[in-house]
Amino acid sequence: MAEPFIIAENLSYTYTDDEGDSTEALKNVSFTVNSGEYVAVLGHNGSGKSTLAKLLNVILTPSGGSLTVGGHKIHADMSEDDVFEVRRDVGMVFQNPDNQLVATIVEEDVAFGPENLGIPRDEIRMRVDDALKTVGMYEHRGAQPHRLSGGQKQRVAIAGVIAMMPKCIVFDESTAMLDPRGRAEVMANIRKLNDDFGITVLHITHYMDEAVMADRIIVVNDGEIYRDGTPKEVFCDVEGLRRVGLDVPQGRELLYELSECGIEFDDNPIDIENCAKLILEKFGAQK
């Protein structure tokens, strides 16, 4: 039986800007993510999804409600050691591939996290090599980060997190600045981490084609949870998703448009193969 890894209850967060105006970035949000789950958090820019990511790693602390991550309660008065423990469990990969690599050599960057954890040298060596092999960057271990492509840099960043052996990894729009090849590379790695290593994955994104790869999607809009369910369930509501500024897969969109014109279908698939099957059935029945 899967245990909950992240538990949010009536979680809220309020920003206060320089002029003293406050904005509610998250409003009374409640959800649970189980250990080993792969969840996508989908929302447009400014929906509050990145705030959520920052709370999970104690970059921000809740203004209201409660948040528990890996058994640690996240709050403003946590001791430095408690914060350290949370960050050891929850790794984070950020958006800009240039701004998260610290060292001048790939393998030294991957070693940065384990070094901070005070892990013995021989074990760091092993972890670094394993992590680089996992993301397929082992042959680039001696390279300088600025010579790599965006996708490669992100893979190094992922290796840096894997080497710390966290239980959960949060991808905070980690594909937003990549080209399609880089995005595919990163997505393949996310899937692999979840499938092969059982790492809990929270992938924050505004690309619906990435969100459909998750087991579950939480749609965030205006600081609230708008939908929470399997990709198929979530994308069922084409009209609603459009209203909150999100796309739906083109196959699903087409079926929806047709049903609006009176051509009804019994199912709401999101992949083109099943969409084609339904349309062909309809066409066959009509003849």
Partner: peptide
């Protein structure tokens, strides 16, 4: 585009309203 696909399929599947 989805719009073009919709137009073609409606004519073939014989949609109702509009």
């Amino acid at each position: 585009t989805v719009d073009d696909a919709k137009a073609v399929l409606i004519s073939m599947l014989g949609g109702g309203r509009k």
